[in-house]
Design a protein around this nucleic acid. Sequence first.
DNA 1: CTCTTTTGTTAGATATATCTAACTTTAAGC
DNA 2: GCTTAAAGTTAGATATATCTAACAAAAGAG
Lengths: 252, 252
Amino acid sequence: MTTIKALTGSLEDYLEAIYHLLHQENKARVKDVADHLQVKKSSVTVALRALAKQKLINYAPYGEVTLTLLGEKTAEDVVRRHETLKEFFITVLDVDAKQAEDTACKMEHVLSKEMTDKFIQFMEFIDICPRTGQDWVEKFHNYCGEKHASGDCKGCLNEVKEKIRLLPSVKTKEETLCALSSLKPGEKAEVVKIQHKGTFRKRILEMGVTTGAVLMVERMAPLGDPVDIKIRGYHLSLRKEETKNILVKILR
Amino acid sequence: MTTIKALTGSLEDYLEAIYHLLHQENKARVKDVADHLQVKKSSVTVALRALAKQKLINYAPYGEVTLTLLGEKTAEDVVRRHETLKEFFITVLDVDAKQAEDTACKMEHVLSKEMTDKFIQFMEFIDICPRTGQDWVEKFHNYCGEKHASGDCKGCLNEVKEKIRLLPSVKTKEETLCALSSLKPGEKAEVVKIQHKGTFRKRILEMGVTTGAVLMVERMAPLGDPVDIKIRGYHLSLRKEETKNILVKILR
DNA sequence: CTCTTTTGTTAGATATATCTAACTTTAAGC
DNA sequence: GCTTAAAGTTAGATATATCTAACAAAAGAG
């Protein structure tokens, strides 16, 4: 009894909505959730009971809704699947934001962790491989529009050549490396060295900050603390102090 | 009333199963469908009634099940979405066949025509662009396995160079073109010229056989008639006579 | 041509996820 | 602090998609 059975897609949606509301508005009232998901309040009440029964949220009638630790973790996974699909649809397939959002919302429930990782790795690889990169992705978008833009392959080759020419220097010259703390929001980078020891090192490794991983700085508070980054599909918040000792190589 | 409302995911599954059974076994009995979808026969009966009500199948109690024209067309769309996702998962993301099949099965119901096209175009582009191609996809698969195989970029560059060097000759030398009829099963090609006139020209253009489209020969009957091809995610069956006047450029 | 097995149907139950409508609690206005 | 408005809950209805169990039709075996 009380088997930890998998969440239904619908309940995952409610959990995700609560997660977003709590992080963005600091409160997740029944009405907010109802508006967010475009359902009636009565449906939300039912869902909250179900989520509480599964120990994903703290909830009592008329009470405040908060996520349990398990709920937080579960919601993060759902969000990660969602964001991964959405990012792939928008940045790679060039689908418009609304359709990407809607489709990701429906597909997220059936994407395994393994496949989510594959999507993330694929986008990383497109970024990292000198043969591709953002300019290649753009060529694909043009191909879609013009239907048969065989394009300027010679010019393309030169771009690839140049990227490859620059490659070894990146590996030897330390100048091209910099601390994570010196990146600007929107910049992508590959983790080169983690100059931390002990528990903290272990903790950030567990969060996916490992050598070779590709990350992006999402936000930085006015004084640079905290720094929000996205890595392997997860959103992380690091203190500025912690980012100073992570060496990265800026991409592109 | 009797609005042509969208099929539910479940009914799409039944329709898809019927389509496959009819094409593979020439019959789609209640039991076959039940076994195929791993549900009880009573569930199938209910579903058949629903599909018949929507004019997608011909069905009467204890009678034979066949697809209506609308049903055939609808099923083809579902299959196309399914196959597209599955192909992307297997050939690009390198997901194992079973998981690709399962995930495609659940995701297919929420993929729009537009996004299906994008997936197909993306796979086409990977094939066509000299910067990528199958060798690039394989590099990605290695990258996934070894986690950080920065690999032999110089060698890679030479491959790209060679592909681009060969490119112009393809465009001028007629020798590299051949009739679709001379392809072997498994070979991929890009449509270069359709030497047909009138109704048939119009018909095959409608089916997606247009200049620049990438197709693959799936099967060829002993005497070469009919030829089954896959193009833009659709499966087509052409008579040998019809394939003689379609000029293609073999890929890879 | 009957008997048995297989196949197909029906009826009724269950689970999920919604809704509407009525009711209750909490919060806000003055 | 009372009154009203907003927010939240409950109960009961509906729709989908399943199931089990009992029954009916068709097919196969002798």
